[in-house]
Design a protein around this nucleic acid. Sequence first.
RNA 1: GGAACCGUAGCUCAGCUGGGAUGAGCGUCCGCUUGACGUGCGGGAGGUCAUGGGUUCGAUCCCCGUCGGUUCCACCA
Length: 889
Amino acid sequence: MRKELAKTYDPQGIEDRIYKNWEDKKYFHAEVDYSKKPFTIVIPPPNITGQLHMGHALDNTMQDILIRFKRMQGYNALWQPGTDHAAIATEVKVIDALKEQGIDKNDLGREGFLEKCWDWRKEYGTRIVNQLKKLGSSCDWDRERFTMDEGCSNAVQEVFIKMHEKGWIYKGSRIINWCPVCKTSISDAEVQYEDQAGHFWHIKYPLIEEDGSISKTRFLEFATTRPETMLGDTAVAVHPEDDRYKDVIGRKVWLPFVDRQIPIVADEYVDREFGTGVVKITPAHDPNDFEVGKRHHLPEINILNDDATINANGGKFVGMDRYECRKQIVKELNEMGLLVEIEDYSHNVGTHDRCGTTVEPMIKPQWFVKMDELIKPAVEGIKNGDIKLIPKRMEKTYFNWTDNIRDWCISRQLWWGHRIPAYTCDKCGEITVARQKPETCPCCGHDHLTQDPDTLDTWFSSALWPFSTLGWPEKTKELEYFYPTDVLVTGYDIIFFWVIRMIFSGYEQMGQKPFNTVLFHGLVRDALGRKMSKSLGNGIDPLEIIHEYGADALRMTLITGNAPGNDMRFYNERVIANRNFGNKVWNASRFIMMNMPEGQEAGPDMPGALNAEDKWILSRFNTVVKEVTENMERFELGIAVQKVYDFIWDEFCDWYIEMVKPRLYQSDDQASKDAALWTLQTVLIGSLKLLHPYMPFITEEIFTTIQSREETIMLSAWPVYREDFAFPHEEKGISMVKEAVRAVRNIRAERNVAPSRKAKIYVVSDSDEVLDTFREDEVFFKTLAFASDLELQKDKAGVPDGSISAVLPAETLYIPLADLLDVQAEIARLQKEEKRLQGELKRSAGMLSNEKFLAKAPAAKIEAEKEKQKQYEVQMEGVRKELEQLRSM
RNA sequence: GGAACCGUAGCUCAGCUGGGAUGAGCGUCCGCUUGACGUGCGGGAGGUCAUGGGUUCGAUCCCCGUCGGUUCCACCA
């Protein structure tokens, strides 16, 4: 039974069927095979809590395109998939879900809660994976990993222990960002600053007089945006060179409410120009003050509980919420006459990127990764080009971060995550870092140790992803073969969180880079250019788009017209346009199939009797293959697919197929017919292959229907440049086709200008030609026939040179060229062309006589220039000849 | 405060290392039931490539400045 294509392409059903087939046949699976070159991509692991959004869709489409492209090129392509436990994100969700059932996290206890988390993962961890499959992602699902599976957990533990031994992981009391709602520390990268309207409270502290009394006349005035932190003040600071305060340095001021006398210290940190030049110092609740405090050995007084209420150090304010306390303090200061003024002030407030809560800087014992040494190879690797960032400008962002890097706070007061492998002796407090809980304390021999309750930052495990997924710390053959990976595709918003951390982890743990290239994409925004967000409700669900238009249309929309690293706008009209393109491909294929006699599949060998238009489209296809491949190798996916799109729609469908119709329908010449059919199939199948990485489903459906030799397009060979398709550019037939195209356009224009004219017309040029058939009742130019067919009829009709004629089966009519072409316009065009060529020739001559250019430019470039010059000369000659001819008409 | 990006057709955007505004989608106007496709076909209108200056034989593309927009980083209490 001969296969057929349905009248219309309906992605629903077809896509799922095709995907299942691919999966069943294990086409996505890659095994270590030293006879083939590997090409590896590791997926940025989506959160198990996640729902597929446009960002994922873009990210994974790009990866799938690259993987499919390389797979077809014959590489052993591995797309390593997996999911991320996403510590805090998941924990928050699970807590919320429990809350709805009226369950509190703490009532369940650690074990009980973790069980709920694993249940969650079981339920939702597969959801995102299934959604990725809907997109067409050709991941090797047999190798799917999870950041908290056994292997990845081993990797985490191994790295922690190694780095601790090296002294690069340490525990210390440092100022960290604390989220009072999530009740955990967070890293600098997780703090999001946003502008908030606030106030500047101008406050004064009374000076302590020589006799120890509190002055009623002398004050030190300063301003603050967080008055409540004064409860933790342990000094005020001035600039050492500030003449206004030189005499009070070393003396003390009185701190109200807690009745403390605190010193006036001199520190360069103070900006004399800003405000009064006096700063209150709260070492426990401000990073800068913390540093000042260290320099002057000031006490650090923590005034906050973990939920940001005031603790016992806050005296009478104990138990109050931080903002309540602020109000109260301001009120009382005012009553005491110590409030000078309140100023409106807009300032940046640090918030937690997960929950939006204003973070409080606090001093807490936490685990840190020492960054100064670790970051060095990561900086060097980018600088010396070991790793390439695309687009290159991302390097600046990268260095901006690495240059200002601070130690990384990795401990989190969460339960869902990798527990820190550190054990504290209940007796002597000695901390032991080990793979397993020690039986006895190596310090005092006590036999009861408690594991650190904290877990690790989720990015700690993601940082190891490129090698932990390949089996590290085991020495696997996968690791040897697939590592370093080739490309990492991700959004630029994640560069600090993830990309940098993978890079330094790769260099440190593996001794080499984790990937060769990082390909960044931008954000997918809504039609108005806004970020898609839950709160705005402007998110577009990729699954709905897939449901309505198909994954192919969605993928095309995400890739076309977009440059690396640039944000894009998503709107339905673009999806529809791409759906329409799919429809076009479908119908062109249907046309070819319905003209194919059964069993007549195009073989690899080119028939001898090719017509001019066959050669033309083959040579065009050849060029497109070359260019598209080059673009794709340079990761210029948007440009590459645009070329395929234009080629298929314009040149192949609108011109070639139309040109070839008379041969299929009317010609008796079987050889010519066969040549047409061969060319149609060859170019179609080749184009389908070029398109496959972008539109995997429709191309597979057509491919498996139109030919029977291969069972899937995804494992078929990527088209390569063929010498035998590279017909010399000047070959008469090909230039003739171009001329024909131009002439037909002129004629069509003519028809539109004067549609009432019933002349029966046409063909082009005085050389060999093109003819356009038409219906009797109107001047309608649709199809073309070419020289070979025409020659004969032309003789019959006695068409004179220098005219354009139309040939109908029965009769031939002609009108002079001048009637069809607007001679004046044509002359103007040619004159313009002549001028341009003059310019080009001048440039060429200039370059070729430029000593500097000849000395410095690569030989190939000089050759190319000479070649260009020759071409210009030829073109110029042609233009002048044509002009002469037109002028004489 | 530092940095990056953007400003090209009515709208959204491509345009690789300087050499014809080369251009796409959508929109718009005109004409088409053409033996694959109206999810289509043909034709047209529409652009001082933000602005001023510089380098060059030549700049949308390079350099400097200005204006407008977006974003990232840092953060001064």
